[in-house]
């Protein structure tokens, strides 16, 4: 039996909204410790990794590990009916369940229940090495979203370079080019923290960075981690309960 209540149901809704443009079908991997999602986009360029620890839920019960295969668009349709202060209670049988039950309960006297059909999804699990990164940038998530959105009008590839003066986001395109420099700042409402061992410069597809910023409502700050010649990690922490992490392979010069 899997049964878990998420008091702030809107957190789960925000997770599904954050990943549904990248991931069509995915497994909710439920275990005693957590509910996790790992899935690549169809082009195998980026990967989404979600973790919600059991402590994020009340009444968490997972008797044995289970993979619940969902279609994110269909899950999103059901979550449209979630009230903004509703809790969600998830329920599924142990043995290859064919549906996931979700109860939406608000402060009012209304309880809504929905059943989402589940699918068998073959997944390719990738092992992500737990290695330290050369540069880690923490900045406001809405500021990162604005930068990515603004630079998209100039071209489709963004060079992110982290150096002594800060982090530079650069785009070169047919109509011209642009650079946005983000510097370390201690200001409370606009805090930027840059930890750098060695300067790093990598190229990324803005289209994917833009997909990642769909997770902006989940977190005040985003953490961007880079090392030479490896995928960037764009992490949206979910309080102390988990995260949504996006990995994106760099582009290389021909």
């Amino acid at each position: 039996m899997f049964e878990a209540q998420l008091v702030e149901g809107k957190t789960f809704k925000a997770i599904i909204e954050a990943i549904k443009d990248l991931v069509v079908d995915c497994n909710l991997d439920c275990s005693e410790e957590e509910v996790a999602i790992q899935s690549m986009d169809s082009a195998h360029v980026s990967l989404v990794a979600v973790r919600l620890s059991a402590s994020a839920f009340s009444n968490y019960r997972c008797d044995r590990p289970n993979s619940l295969g969902i279609n994110t668009a269909n899950m999103s349709k059901i979550l449209k009916m979630l009230g903004k202060d509703d809790s969600i209670t998830f329920k599924a049988e142990d043995e290859s369940p064919d549906s996931l039950t979700m109860l939406f309960e608000g402060g009012k006297s209304t309880i809504a229940d929905f059943e989402l059909k589940l699918m068998d999804i073959e997944t390719e699990q990738l092992g992500i090495p737990d290695t330290p990164y050369q540069c880690t940038i923490q900045m406001r998530a809405d500021e990162f979203q604005r930068i990515v959105r603004d630079l998209q009008v100039l071209g489709d590839t963004c060079t992110i370079s982290c150096g002594k003066e800060g982090v530079r986001f650069s785009v070169t395109g047919a109509i011209g080019n642009g650079n946005i420099l983000v510097r370390s700042s201690d200001e409370d409402k606009d805090k930027v923290t840059i930890n750098m061992e060695e300067p790093v410069e990598l190229n990324f597809a803005l289209r994917y960075l833009n997909f990642f910023t769909k997770a902006t409502p989940l977190a005040e700050n985003v953490v961007i981690s880079m090392s030479p010649d490896v995928p960037v990690v764009v992490e949206y922490p979910i309080e102390e309960f988990g995260h949504v992490k996006f990995y994106l392979a760099p582009k290389i010069e021909e």
């Binding site: 360029v45 699990q125 990738l126 992500i128 990995y247 392979a249 290389i252």
Partner: peptide
């Protein structure tokens, strides 16, 4: 223009 890498070139399957 730079070429897009595939993620599987970086992370091994488990």
């Amino acid at each position: 223009t730079p070429m897009q890498n595939n993620l599987k070139e970086f992370f091994a399957m488990v």
